[in-house]
Nucleic acid binder design. Structure first.
Lengths: 143, 143
DNA sequence: ATTCATCCCATCGTATCCCATTGAATCCCA
DNA sequence: TGGGATTCAATGGGATACGATGGGATGAAT
């Protein structure tokens, strides 16, 4: 598989449901997903494999630090397990929608091992803002 | 399973009962849970698996330290076995409620292998207070 | 006898399931 | 290669099941 790619804009209906892009739906098969916020700009939706890795990292971090799991709880309290319905739709809980500024439209952005959920205009702004910042890396990456 | 996730705010009724969030109820199946306080800010509710691990650690500590028994008894004396009723509700003993400042509302916070019980306003304050402290860890954990 | 916990039943609101509709992309065959 | 038929994806709405909460009744303990 090539990883999760592309952008797809979908509507949130009156009951708070959104379709997962069908391309992503096939890719993540039937397992539940984890939706959370760890960056202020958007939400991340993790397939099972990726989440297992991250969960391991979170637990290791809690053991290593002295703060009694403060970072972990900051993350998990903003997390939610997502199980698509029979039509491949998901529900985003209100408190997460607010945090990401999602109103009636969601932009799904594929990011190889995860799916990002953006407020469309915010995503455009984010791209513009960084325009040209990374030209040095480009050559290293694409040779 | 993805671990215990999310935040859920529930009322304590006139008889001192609170519903366990249904998401958590399913996750911990039918086994009894252990509720205790080991951090001043909140209470922790441990599923069977997690508690077995912790109990092992407590006993090991008592054996290893000269006055290890003191720590153990400090913990166990603030502990309580919880068994949800037929509707999935639990009762929090008064002395534990006081210690965590719980009055009429409980905020349940999922923390992967345990459930934390917070006084809602205290939790908000706790999150704000740490805002931005951990930005360095974020990249290590989430890649 | 009085207090308190447990059980049972009732209610209300919301999330979930199921079916229907629309439109677009794909397939098939001439 | 064009045009019609067919499948699939995205969305909407009604019905149903389940979750959250309240209150009365039963039973145990002091």
């Amino acid at each position: 598989m090539s990883g999760l790619l592309g952008r797809h804009e979908f509507q949130i209906d009156a009951k708070g449901r959104v379709s997962l892009p069908s391309a992503f739906r096939r890719a993540v098969s039937a397992h539940p997903l984890v939706l959370l916020q760890w960056q202020p700009t958007h939400l991340d939706l993790f397939p099972r494999e990726t989440w297992n890795e991250i969960r391991k990292n979170l637990l290791a971090h809690r053991k290593a630090q002295r703060d009694g799991g403060a970072y972990l709880r900051g993350i998990t309290s903003n997390s939610f397990e997502i199980e698509p319905d029979t039509h491949g739709r998901i529900r985003i809980p209100g408190w997460l929608r607010e945090r990401a500024g999602l109103e009636d439209t969601v932009l799904f952005v594929g990011a190889l091992d995860r799916i990002e959920l953006w407020r469309p205009d915010r995503f455009e702004a984010h791209l513009c803002e960084r325009e040209g910042d990374d030209d040095d890396f480009a050559v290293q990456i694409f040779g």
